[in-house]
Amino acid sequence: MDRCDPDWTDLMRQAIAGNAAAYDSLLRDAAARLRPIVRRGLLRAGHSGTDAEDIVQEILIAVHLKRHTWDDTRPVGPWIRAIAHHKTIDALRRHGNRHDLPIDDFADLIAAEEPRPSVADADVGRQLATLAPGQRQVIQAIAIEGLSIGEAASRFTMKPGAVRVALHRAIRSLAGQAGRL
């Protein structure tokens, strides 16, 4: 934690300034470090670890949508940890489990990386099928095919601003799915 913290804080600052590569490596690194911790928390609460990837995605979306609540004079690590803890507890509660996760679980964000989820696990992630068609085609093109905003705009003959709005709305709806799972 201590070791990676200054690094994450720096990446988050650059990300907020608009640096795509910094944001990408921050989110990937966070996902890799959160994955085993979330899985361990689920197992300890008596669940199978198969929902772990879904919770990791929920944490990443929350980090993204709530990044304006990070005080950039402080290290970003404890802030991400607080979100991860909140989201994991929330998921356990939705599954009818009032188990209190010890906060220390997330103190250890340096834990060894876990192998990426298998193909079967990957299906557990956020479901695109529930999105409005307009939002779905935009997020699919950008997330899965890797198109840029501009490329997506010309494919769907939309203005770049409209693509941005559709993408942002799609991400917000993915966040909103959690309560309905």
């Binding site: 990300a15 795509a20 995605q57 990443l60 990957a122 956020r126 941005r164 799609a170 993915l174």
Partner: peptide, 22 residues
């Protein structure tokens, strides 16, 4: 959606940051 794909979408949406809570 795979996590890597989701991250790609979040990075593309990086300009959407809202104003400070205070």
């Amino acid at each position: 959606m795979r996590t890597d794909d989701l991250i790609q979408a979040l990075v593309a949406d990086r300009t959407s940051r809202e104003g400070p809570v205070a």
